[in-house]
Simulated assay, not measured.
Amino acid sequence: MDPSPAHPPGDLRNWLELPRDVTASILLKLGAIEILTSAQNVCSLWRNICKDPSMWRAVDMRNLGDLPYEYDFEKMCEHAVDRSGGELVDINIEYFGTDELLKYITESSSQLRRLRLVCCYSISDEGLSEAAEKLPLLEELDFSYCSLSKESLEAVGRCCPLLKSLKFNNQGYRRPRMECDEDALAIAGSMPELRHLQLFGNKLTDDGLLAILGGCPKIESLDLRQCFNVTLTGDLGRRCADSIKRLRSPCDSTSDYEFDAEIHDSGSFDDDFASVFSLSDGYGYFDSGGSDISDYDFFTEAFLNLD
């Protein structure tokens, strides 16, 4: 005899009867944008849960270009930061971050440990340097594909002594050949606690790599893919092999890299840096001319009125 079904035909599960912590766990999987624009509107219980500061310790506000233009992501992000009540430890403002937004975040979030600023062309060296002064507990930073220089690296190293993971990636260039060890020297001179470093597409040379090995002796993983000025031969290659557990060499596969890994072999770097970056899965395109989603002067007020 077949066992009776847990719920007789026609019976509907009442999701409001779930324990509060289970409901919170489910809602957390939606992400900040989905919570602010839809989930919190379902019922008073869900809205109450969505206003709990513990729901906003990690805020992922990345916009891949597939969301409605009427959303004002900066305002939504500020609202998420407010809801965290100072408990924010992890935030991603990929593609739409600005100096003003970064200032708002850091002035309200002294406990921040992880920060992701990928493709945030409106964040300046000055803006990131000022923000770094308010982030003494920062452990992980990704500010790839931004218009930032060694000044930002030095400021982060000086102000964030606990930094253990850094991603500072750029578009790979094989030709014209351009060598520059400024980034490497800034990292080597200010980030002695680094364990994980990704410098995809950087212009550092063997000298810059030697400086990093000397100044950052605790590095366990190092990603040098498309760093075509690095040779990794002879004594340098042996030193890397002996001291680094996970090493990605300049010509290693980029199949698992999340961004476009096309190699630029002609033209000037300054002209090409402003070209389009795209995700490898084809979602969204963004350029450095200020045409990303933060430039649209639209905003849906509904989610703010719920407070």
Rank of each mutant, 00 (worst) to 15 (best):
residue 2 D to H: 09
residue 4 S to L: 11
residue 5 P to H: 11
residue 7 H to K: 10
residue 8 P to H: 08
residue 14 N to Q: 02
residue 14 N to T: 02
residue 20 R to T: 10
residue 22 V to D: 12
residue 25 S to A: 08
residue 30 L to S: 02
residue 46 W to H: 04
residue 46 W to G: 02
residue 47 R to L: 13
residue 48 N to Y: 12
residue 55 M to L: 06
residue 65 G to K: 10
residue 65 G to S: 04
residue 69 Y to R: 12
residue 73 F to G: 00
residue 73 F to I: 01
residue 75 K to F: 02
residue 76 M to V: 02
residue 80 A to I: 10
residue 81 V to M: 09
residue 84 S to N: 00
residue 92 N to S: 08
residue 93 I to M: 00
residue 98 T to D: 13
residue 99 D to Y: 06
residue 102 L to T: 09
residue 107 E to H: 05
residue 107 E to L: 03
residue 108 S to E: 09
residue 109 S to V: 03
residue 116 R to D: 02
residue 117 L to T: 00
residue 134 K to G: 08
residue 136 P to C: 07
residue 138 L to E: 00
residue 140 E to I: 00
residue 142 D to M: 01
residue 153 L to C: 04
residue 156 V to N: 06
residue 159 C to H: 05
residue 160 C to D: 12
residue 160 C to E: 02
residue 160 C to H: 11
residue 162 L to R: 15
residue 167 K to M: 14
residue 170 N to C: 03
residue 174 R to K: 13
residue 182 E to S: 12
residue 193 E to T: 10
residue 194 L to F: 07
residue 195 R to I: 12
residue 195 R to D: 10
residue 196 H to C: 12
residue 197 L to F: 07
residue 205 T to N: 11
residue 211 A to L: 09
residue 214 G to D: 15
residue 219 I to H: 08
residue 224 L to P: 12
residue 231 T to I: 01
residue 231 T to M: 01
residue 237 G to A: 09
residue 237 G to D: 12
residue 241 A to K: 09
residue 242 D to W: 04
residue 242 D to F: 11
residue 246 R to I: 14
residue 246 R to A: 12
residue 247 L to G: 13
residue 249 S to L: 04
residue 253 S to H: 04
residue 259 F to N: 05
residue 259 F to D: 01
residue 261 A to S: 15
residue 272 D to R: 15
residue 277 F to Y: 14
residue 277 F to N: 11
residue 278 S to H: 15
residue 279 L to H: 05
residue 284 G to Q: 00
residue 285 Y to W: 14
residue 287 D to T: 04
residue 287 D to N: 14
residue 287 D to C: 09
residue 289 G to W: 13
residue 290 G to I: 02
residue 294 S to Q: 10
residue 295 D to E: 13
residue 295 D to W: 03
residue 303 F to Q: 12
residue 304 L to N: 09
residue 306 L to G: 08
residue 307 D to M: 15
